[in-house]
């Protein structure tokens, strides 16, 4: 009897003998274990059934990674805070610079100005009003707090000068201005009005001249629109304080 015949005899016909049943029970448990193991290997996480040292290693790695990521996060957050801070500071500085520029522009006559003030009109058909009278008027206005001044269509700033020309004409800062001289002044209108109207003040002085007259009118809102062209200094540079 060869091995092949024995195999065939064992397989068919099925006999319910004791050896067959015992072997069947053992093989049944083997198949059960096989199925469980295959399924758990395929579907469950690799960590299930891992050894203690492997788990410790995996845990260490995860801990180190978490530590690294937290460090990264802290660094990024601090740099974010730094950037936000500096951008806020830059915005604040820009705002202040812009405000300063506006103020200086009004003083230097490079930007238009608007606000309350007075209009002083000096009529001089006889040509009696001369440059010194206009200069006195301007000084009075400045002393009374004038912030932006325009005579006819010439902006008056710190460097403006007056010079006599033909009667009824005064050269103001290089431009001929003919009468009537119309001062548009921005400032505290009441102060300006009072300063011009005091005894011996501008209005009286002008009125004393033959044929000349001065009138002051307070205005709630005025615009000084004449501009001085901005010139860049050729030699002087600003020095850092």
């Amino acid at each position: 009897m060869t091995g092949r015949q024995r195999l065939a005899a064992a397989l068919w016909p099925p006999r319910l003998s004791r050896p067959q049943v015992v072997v069947a029970l053992l093989l049944c448990s083997l198949g059960l274990g096989l199925a469980i193991q295959v399924r758990s290997t395929n579907t469950e996480t690799q960590l299930r059934g891992a050894r203690q040292e492997d788990l410790v290693r995996v845990l260490d790695e995860v801990d180190a990674k978490q530590q690294r990521l937290q460090d990264d996060r802290q660094q990024l957050q601090s740099s974010l805070a730094t950037l936000q801070n500096s951008s806020q500071q830059a915005a604040e500085a820009q705002k202040q610079t812009r405000t300063k520029e506006q103020q200086l522009g009004v003083l230097a006559g490079t930007v238009a100005a608007t606000g309350p003030g007075i209009v002083l009109t000096v009529n001089d058909p006889g040509g009696k009003v001369q440059a010194d009278m206009l200069l006195n008027t301007l000084e009075e206005l400045r002393a009374a707090g004038a912030e932006a001044v325009q005579i006819n269509n010439v902006r008056v700033v710190a460097g403006t000068w007056f010079s006599d020309a033909d009667p009824g004409t005064v050269v103001t800062g290089g431009t001929k201005v003919t009468q009537p001289y119309r001062f548009t002044v921005i400032g505290n209108s009441h102060d300006l009005d009072v300063a011009l109207g005091i005894p011996g003040g501008v209005v009286q002085s002008v009125d004393k001249l033959q044929g000349a007259s001065a009138t002051v009118s307070e205005q709630k809102s005025l615009s000084v629109t004449a501009l001085i062209p901005l010139s860049t200094p050729g030699y002087a540079h600003s020095a850092q304080p």
Binding site: V23, C28, R39
Partner: peptide
């Protein structure tokens, strides 16, 4: 033959029931 059947039954039970092990 009974033994082979036992193996097959074990595999099928394991796959169908999916019992947990300690």
């Amino acid at each position: 033959m009974i033994a082979v059947l036992g193996l097959v039954i074990g595999v099928v039970v394991g796959l169908v029931v999916q019992p947990g092990i300690p």
